[in-house]
Design a protein around this nucleic acid. Structure first.
Lengths: 179, 179
DNA sequence: ACCTGAACACCGTTCAAGT
DNA sequence: ACCTGAACACCGTTCAAGT
């Protein structure tokens, strides 16, 4: 709040005329950001593609303003109602019902916004003692890590979630195991 | 730091004799917590069950100390090497190779620790204006939400991730689409 | 209507000093 | 070896007041 005021050339208390507290300001920021994300038309394709489209749209906004993802992660309901409804409608179209819609939404939400909180694995400094036991799997795999970009993590995560949701739907239709 | 010192009956600067800064202290706390999580024996069952076991073990520790999850979410490498290696070995056993091990691990990590940052959807106050448009899907589904517990979200999330990972493996074995 | 100033109760951390 | 005290540069926020 103080830094904001400073950058705007106002006193520390100026923002408090517009807003009750910091949380309220951040809520307005998240809403503004998410309002620019488009929802695909309900008949524009299979649910998997539509889900991927919204989620990619959200991710693009977060890419420009990664700091705000923490706020969105924290409070689910703070997410734009329009987007939350849009995603839930896609999930209903997919065949989810009742509580499963929430469970699926929560999973997507957690991954989508949680992603931005994670900072990558640094390659461990080999000069810094205990450079690697023989059984250090991480050590062995490090070369592969350096090739990966943020986009790869995102695509893989979304692919895996969609595939997982498809499996949940399939399990519901022909339940081999008991609930 | 100040509150810690206060609770220990020491001056504000006392912790700084043991630790360089706050981050370092929190790293020690996470390591201590995760060191108590058991890794299943490599031949104790199918990879899905072993993965579920570790992840459930981690979640149990987080349940007792939810605040620390934010620290673990943030810095992947700060996660106990033992656990990270353990999970990656399970993924190797499952059939993942190279970069896919990292991509899969990152997904699990993000979900597992991100979960604790999310606070639930409050049921919206109907007295507080705009109680619900007709097309408010969220509103319609609220009754189902109230039945859900934290454990339900966790189980559903883990099930979905495991099913998703299985699908990724299957897609790798018989690649119908191109990479 | 829009903003300021002083004050309060906090933070993490540096640095020199004490026993 | 282990800790203290004073100080610095920050926070978010309350409250009364100014134009």
């Amino acid at each position: 709040m103080r830094r904001l005021s400073r950058e705007l050339g106002r006193s520390a208390m100026a923002p408090y005329w517009y807003v009750n507290d910091k949380r309220e300001l951040l809520d307005l920021v998240t809403r503004k950001l998410l309002s620019e994300v488009k929802l695909p038309e309900p008949d524009s394709g299979p649910w998997e593609d539509r889900l991927r489209e919204v989620v990619t749209g959200i991710d693009a906004r977060l890419h420009d303003h990664p700091g705000i993802a923490a706020v969105m992660l924290e409070r689910m309901q703070n997410t734009d109602r329009r987007l939350m409804n849009g995603i839930m409608e896609i999930l209903l179209d997919a065949g989810f019902e009742g509580a499963d819609v929430f469970l699926s939404y929560a999973m997507i939400h957690t991954y989508l916004f949680g992603r931005y909180q994670v900072v990558g694995v640094d390659t461990p400094d080999p000069a810094k003692g205990l450079p690697g036991d023989l059984e250090d799997t991480l050590q062995r795999l490090i070369p592969h890590l350096t090739k990966l970009r943020g986009r790869d993590f995102f695509n893989y995560g979304v692919d895996t979630i969609i595939a997982g949701l498809q499996a949940q739907l399939a399990a519901k239709k022909r339940p081999r195991r008991r609930r």
